[in-house]
Design a protein around this nucleic acid. Structure first.
Lengths: 263, 263
DNA sequence: CGATAGTTTGATATCCTTCAAAACCTGTGG
DNA sequence: CCACAGGTTTTGAAGGATATCAAACTATCG
């Protein structure tokens, strides 16, 4: 999570947009996510998809920015995975949240400019980059886009609260179950689930770092879910065999992720 | 934290504003807090202070609203203390964050309307209440007020992140130390610290519920800080004897609370 | 095919919880 | 002013969940 610096190559052409079936209008993950919050019209989609035109290719292990830096750009993941994280003095690390395709990396930047966390890439990734002011303009270019953005930040905060509850009050098995349910729901929103499978590129250490558990203990806990026949993980792909029981164990209630339609 | 319903009495006159020395312009806690983010002018202050005119008096143990409810009002604490919290199925409770004078209770409401947490009062409290739309208008009535509001929500999110790190990665002693430092810094911002003392109306169980610890274990941990001569608590008042060592133990770095001036 | 990162297993230590009871406050009514 | 009730703090003893340390095993990729 700390390669030397941001040495990005510009993609020459046709960025990979993943998980979308319609070849005529290949919405990027950000567009898909926003659209799931607020029905967008064609103009909105074009405005958002324009972000994709010149994505930068980041590589696994690279940081988009680090704690303490001044924010200068807005980043959104188009494909690929990342995480917000903090390093503690004693060498420990806490992952605040994973970032999946469609996620915006640094809302915080819009006000503070000085980041209190880092964002790193877990995989190679296409990243939409734009100046803060351009992104700001985009948000105000349409009321629907602005609303969708606002909702996505609100949901991020809800995810944070729910994670806090998980870590503070649930044991390892409950935590992990809840986490799997949450990732599933988030991936579904951007159309990345296929049947009962979903991409799952995390190492066990990374999952441990988000759930406040040791990699060792996470491993043992994962084995329980596997031997109980609830999930399986192969080839960086998650398969959920018994979603109902998984939700039950984790005490998962998806309402914090999917905001009701506004009155 | 679950009294029957909101049965509020309207205060007939002159609400208590606490902690302010200037009798000519008695800024409410919200005004003081916003002013600490963005220097306000006289008009801004008047607009904010106008919220105080008809505060409602809530009583300790009362909920302002509960998880699952539709938000209809914006609430701000003028004096008195509260907390955001969630109840888990198994009877456990997690306090997301304490609310101190000047804090706004439900930013979330502005977008979602359906709350994913409850807000309860720890003490009797004067609460500014306003319709969502009026509050929204207030926020846009001056760029400084809007900016200050935005900053306060950003800081709230930073507090949440930092609490997550605390609970996930710090042991009881570190957690508690960090918590004390944080409360101190927040109270200082609204002018509620006096010398090396600050109000501290929490029960040990409530502190445990925010730090993910048992009341019993919190008690023992508190004793360590006391016998080491770092802090003392008497009469719902906290006294800090050795702030430096406290910060050291808790790994406390205040930068997440005090956003840099914008460029 | 060897190097490196990730996963799995085992044994032991520690921090925190749980349960239970006593001591201590604080406010209230007689 | 005292006695009493309810909530809060304190103490003790024992159990459990997770961490820590260390090593073997397994994938993956140049």
């Amino acid at each position: 999570m700390n390669k030397p610096a941001l040495a990005w190559r510009r993609l020459p052409s046709s960025p990979l947009t993943s998980g979308n079936s319609d070849p005529a209008t290949p919405d990027c993950a950000l567009t898909r996510k926003f659209d799931s919050f607020v029905r967008l019209d064609a103009t909105d989609r074009d405005l958002l998809n324009a972000l994709v035109r010149e994505p930068l290719l980041g590589t696994a292990g690279q940081d988009l920015f680090q704690e303490g830096e001044q924010a200068e750009h807005a980043y959104a993941l188009l494909d690929g995975w990342g995480c917000r994280y903090k390093n503690l003095g004693n060498g420990k690390r806490q992952i605040i949240n994973f970032l999946i395709p469609g996620d915006i990396c640094d809302v915080y930047a819009f006000v503070s400019r000085k980041m209190d966390y880092s964002v790193g890439l877990l995989t190679d990734a296409n990243v939409a980059v734009s100046s803060l002011s351009n992104f700001w303009d985009l948000l105000w270019s349409s009321p629907r886009i602005g609303q969708a953005f606002f909702r996505s930040t609100i949901i991020d905060e809800g995810i944070l609260r729910e994670r806090l509850v998980s870590i503070a009050r649930r044991n390892a098995l409950e935590r992990l179950s809840h986490f799997v349910c949450e990732m599933w729901a988030r991936l579904q929103r951007v159309g990345l689930t296929v049947g009962d499978t979903a991409p799952f590129p995390f190492t066990q250490e990374q999952i441990g770092d988000t759930l406040g558990l040791t990699a060792v203990h996470l491993n043992r806990t994962l084995q329980i879910l596997r031997t109980q026949g609830l999930i399986s993980v192969q080839n960086r792909t998650l398969r959920i065999h018994d979603p109902k029981q998984l939700r039950e164990i984790g005490g998962f209630d998806s309402s914090y992720l999917s905001i009701e339609e506004m009155a």
